[in-house]
Design a protein around this nucleic acid. Structure first.
Length: 584
RNA sequence: GGGGACGUGGUGUAGCCUGGUUUAACACACUGCCCUGUCAAGGCAGAGACCGCGGGUUCAAAUCCCGUCGUCCCCGCCA
């Protein structure tokens, strides 16, 4: 028998026809005189029926077990009255089997192939091939494929060229830790796996391929999170002769297209734009989740002279006081507030001040330090109502911003304030070009050192702190999907930026000399964007972790329980590379 | 590098706080038998864990303590 058609694709149109289907025994219900098997393949499940008339076949059917691989021929019929299953796509029909071929048996499974049972991830990753058989995974990966092809189709139609860039590249300073690959020919020298194709795509612009894209695999040797893996995929693109608006508009059209064709939803364009400064103030984050309000307000001016010494001294030391309003938060118990205090402690906050809004004003252990007027200002600025809880952080700006931002997100989730049906795309714009690195006492590029400043003519070492970048990040529901910028296409300006970043001429030449050289030979103005494809898939599939949309991910400790990578290698392999293993 | 949660048959959990009627319980899966309309099939019978690992406290440890390993979440880190 040939494989036939997909179980999940059989419809009532096939009633009366003889068909062949192949798949895995998802479940079997043996009634003695009739046996039902749910046969599963990647497209879905079809009920097949064994009847006792064919004695020898029935005997084989009695011995079918979970995950046996079978191929059956039979005729499709409408199910008898009263036995329809409205929960199944194929619930109105069934296949009455006339021929059965058992293609393979299966050992008893370490866990059930079921969407409703949740097994530990460790076990799931060890038996990833079984985990991936679950219908939800099959759906996720079919969706991922659709998303990838829609992105490709869109960019192809827009005139982009798919050009591959190398995996074995040069290690670059700044940025994430590189994965290194020792050179066999040049002992002591190393390739690095790319953190992104950034420099190569810029060089492609200089080569005249004015619209480039790639679904590029990238590598970063940093600690993992739910949304971070050692290797990940990004939709990487670059265009010449464009400015910020051109790139953003292209990305908006791309998302309009893929949301329509993959999720069947319409999104509103242009996306909202929020400045970096504004996002940081209002949401305590440069990737705000705007699906719920709960905005943060600054009270540094109003409470500068309040009697509460913690606030006053924080402000005097150059810090700030900000707060947010928790709707109906007055019923928080003392221990619940303690939990919140501990939570913001993770971000360096030394405490959490709070007050409950009452009909007569406010109450808490700190309101006695506030003037009536101050309380009124707080309440009106936050639009707080009786029964709400107001919480404050007072500290240096970074601690307050991050602490309240994280707290806002936590409360939004805990209090169920997030509308899960919303798809809130937005752009964060007007990024500072650089930020001061306190530990290393130097300026550092906020995005990367090739980002063009908004005002390249006036930039210098003294004013660089106030300079903005031609950069943009795209955020969806509080997740950073990606970012990009207009790049520097002038070698003089690029040198100046390296100088401000305290990268010496020599060092710049050694690390990026090839780019600097290339910029001198007629580099067109260019810019682009890189979008985290795994995050995109996770969001589209409604999953919290990108591991749910990556076929073979690693654990948080960077292991692959399926293949047992990483592993040691033979002395011979090491010798060829001129390496020695030193075990601590 | 740091903080937190978890670790009990094949799987998911209960028991742990308040050590001892625990021969460690329940559900699913598994094995055998019965059953012609189920789809979380049903009925009967059965097999299966000494509680991640190591040490300690105690007359007695799944339960308390210390260490260690693993998984997940978070901080740092991720231009």
């Amino acid at each position: 028998m040939k494989r036939g058609i997909y179980c999940g694709k059989v419809t009532e149109g096939s009633i009366g026809q003889e068909i062949v289907v192949s798949g895995w025994v998802h479940s079997r219900r043996d009634h003695g005189g009739v046996i039902f098997v749910d046969l599963r393949d990647r497209e879905g499940i079809l009920q097949i029926v064994f009847q006792p008339e064919n004695v020898s076949m029935f005997k084989i059917a009695e011995n079918l077990r979970s995950e046996y691989v079978i191929c059956v021929k039979g005729s499709v019929r409408k199910r008898p009255e009263g036995t329809l299953n409205p929960n199944m796509f194929t619930g109105n029909i069934e296949l009455v089997v006339s021929e059965l071929e058992v293609l393979n048996t299966s050992a008893v499974l370490p866990f059930e192939i079921s969407d409703t049972i949740d097994t530990s991830e460790e076990l799931r990753l060890k038996y990833r091939y079984l985990d991936l058989r679950r219908m939800s995974f099959q759906k996720n990966f079919i969706m991922r494929h659709k998303l990838a092809s829609q992105v490709r189709n869109f960019l192809n139609e827009e005139g982009f060229l798919d050009i591959e860039t190398p995996f074995l590249t040069k290690s670059t300073p700044e940025g994430a830790r590189d994965f290194l690959v020792p050179s066999r020919i040049y002992h002591g020298s190393f390739f690095a796996l790319p953190q992104s194709p950034q420099i190569f795509k810029q060089i492609l612009m200089i080569s005249g391929f004015d619209k480039y894209y790639q679904l590029a695999r990238c590598f970063r040797d940093e600690d993992l999170r739910a949304d971070r893996q050692l290797e990940f995929t990004q939709v990487d693109l670059e265009m010449s002769f464009v400015d910020e608006e051109d790139v953003m508009s292209l990305v908006e059209r791309m998302f309009t297209r893929v949301c329509r064709s993959v999720l069947n939803i319409e999104i509103k364009t242009p996306f909202e734009k929020i400045s970096y400064q504004d996002a940081t103030l209002r949401y305590g984050s440069d990737k705000p989740d705007t699906r719920f309000d709960m905005q943060i307000k600054d009270f540094s001016q109003e409470l500068k002279n309040c009697g509460f010494s913690v606030f006053a001294s924080a402000i005097n030391k150059g810090g700030i006081v900000r707060g947010l309003c928790v709707p109906k938060g007055s019923n928080f118990s003392r221990s619940e507030i303690d939990t919140l205090t501990k939570f913001v402690g993770d971000y360096g906050a030394k405490g959490l001040a709070w007050m409950k809004v009452t009909s007569s004003g406010a109450e808490s252990n700190i309101v006695k330090y506030f003037k009536d007027e101050q309380i009124k200002t707080i309440i009106s600025k936050l639009n707080a109502n009786v029964g709400d809880l107001v919480v404050f952080l007072a500290d240096e700006e970074k601690v307050v911003t991050q602490g309240l931002g994280a707290l806002r997100l936590k409360l939004g989730k805990d209090l169920d304030l997030i509308d899960k049906n919303k798809f809130n795309f937005l752009w964060i714009v007007d990024f500072p070009l650089m930020e001061w690195n306190k530990e290393e006492q130097r300026w550092q590029a906020l995005h990367h050192p090739f980002t063009a400043p908004k005002d390249p003519d006036v930039i210098n070492k003294e004013n660089v702190g106030s300079q903005k970048a031609k950069a943009y990040d795209i955020i969806l529901n509080g997740i950073e999907l990606g970012g990009g910028s207009i790049r520097i296409h002038n070698s003089g300006l690029q040198k100046k930026i390296f100088d401000i970043l305290n990268i010496s001429d020599e060092s710049a030449k050694e690390k990026f000399g090839f780019l600097l050289d290339a910029l001198t030979y007629g580099a067109p103005p260019h810019g682009g964007v890189a979008l985290g494809f795994d995050r995109m898939c996770a969001l589209f599939a409604g999953k919290d972790s990108i591991r749910e949309v990556i076929a073979f991910p690693k654990t948080q400790k960077t292991l692959d329980p399926l293949s047992n990578a990483p592993s040691t290698v033979s002395d011979k392999q090491l010798k060829e590379l001129g390496l020695k293993v030193v075990v601590k």
